[in-house]
Computed example of a mutant assay.
Amino acid sequence: MLTAKQHELIRFIQQKLEDTGISPSFEEMKEALDLKSKSGVHRLISALEERGFIRRLPNRARALEVIKLPENSVMGASRPSATPASANDSVIAAHTAKPVAAQPANDIIDVPLHGRIAAGAPIEAIEGQSSMPVPAALLGPGDHYALEVSGDSMIEAGIFDGDFALVKRTETARDGEIVVALVDNEEATLKYLRKEGAMVRLDPANGAYEPQVYEAGRVQVQGKLAGLLRRYH
């Protein structure tokens, strides 16, 4: 079941596609739904995508395709009141939505910046109140935050000191994924996650560093790496 804002957003996207053949920008969606930030738009789009109502066309920041619509969101559709509803009528295919080649766009959303994360020995992950602009095309479904990388233990994975790690919030991760791991509820580090029975091994990507091995109860996954930003001076 969709929320009122999710209903409103998918109706707006569908109407924009029908009227112009181009999906709306984040700014247009923010204004249409009277939201305070583009981050709110991103969360709504992620929720609709996870529920299978829309999809983002790859490598295009502004290419949205409506796959299906809630029944009461179909544009210009009417239904005789005498016709009984069935379980299959909860959603219907949006045949009027035609995939289109999106025009170039640079939608940007603000992602919370939570301080620095160690790519070396663990250091404190500082919870800050700042944010940083991130191209929406770099973020998939889910809630994200950014951390500045400190250290060189992940350089063989292409992660360098001063990079900004874009992290998807999650408390679970598969073996071999790069995660933000909180150790003893005090220190956080960016490492490959390896599970070994009752133990957890946090592997660096630099031969100069040794793996860190802890009892599983001492390590909490706080997110997994979704992307990187690098600033060139």
Score class of each variant (00 low, 15 high):
Ser46Glu: 01
Gly52Phe: 10
Arg60Tyr: 05
Ala61Leu: 06
Val66Met: 02
Arg43Ser: 11
Glu71Asp: 09
Val74Trp: 14
Glu71Thr: 14
Leu48Asn: 00
Arg43Tyr: 05
Leu69Lys: 01
Pro58His: 11
Phe53Gln: 02
Lys68Tyr: 10
Asn72Lys: 13
Asn72Arg: 15
Val41Arg: 04
Pro58Cys: 05
Leu69Met: 08
Arg56Ser: 10
Arg60Gln: 11
His42Phe: 02
Glu71Trp: 12
His42Cys: 03
Ile67Asp: 05
Arg55Tyr: 09
Glu71Ile: 11
Met75Asp: 09
Glu49Pro: 04
Met75Cys: 01
Ile45Met: 10
Glu49Trp: 10
Gly40Asp: 13
Ile54Thr: 02
Ser73Asp: 15
Gly40Gln: 15
Leu44Cys: 08
Phe53Val: 04
Ile67Asn: 04
Pro70Thr: 03
Gly52Asp: 05
Gly52Glu: 13
Leu44Trp: 03
Ile45Pro: 01
Ser39Arg: 14
Gly52Leu: 07
Glu71Pro: 02
Ile45Gln: 03
Arg62Cys: 14
His42Glu: 05
Arg43Phe: 12
Arg56Gly: 08
Leu48Val: 04
Val41Gln: 01
Lys68Trp: 09
Leu57Tyr: 07
Lys38Met: 07
Ala47Phe: 03
Pro70Arg: 00
Ser39Ile: 07
Lys38Thr: 12
Glu71Met: 14
Val41Pro: 05
Val41Trp: 06
Ile54Leu: 07
Ser39Glu: 12
Glu71Lys: 06
Ser73Tyr: 00
Glu65Cys: 13
Glu50Met: 07
Pro58Trp: 06
Val74Tyr: 07
Gly52Thr: 04
Arg56Pro: 09
Glu65Gln: 15
Leu57Phe: 04
Ala63His: 14
Lys38Ala: 09
His42Ala: 07
Ile54Lys: 02
Arg60Trp: 04
Val74Ser: 09
Leu57Asn: 07
Asn72Asp: 12
Arg55Pro: 03
Val66Lys: 05
Leu48Phe: 02
Gly40His: 06
Leu44Tyr: 09
Ile54Cys: 00
Arg62Thr: 08
Glu50Pro: 07
Glu71His: 14
Met75Gln: 10
Pro70Gly: 01
Leu64Arg: 06
Ile54Pro: 00
Leu48Trp: 01
His42Lys: 15
Glu49Ala: 10
Asn59Gln: 14
Pro70Met: 06
Gly40Ser: 12
Val41Ser: 00
Arg51Tyr: 10
Ala61Asp: 15
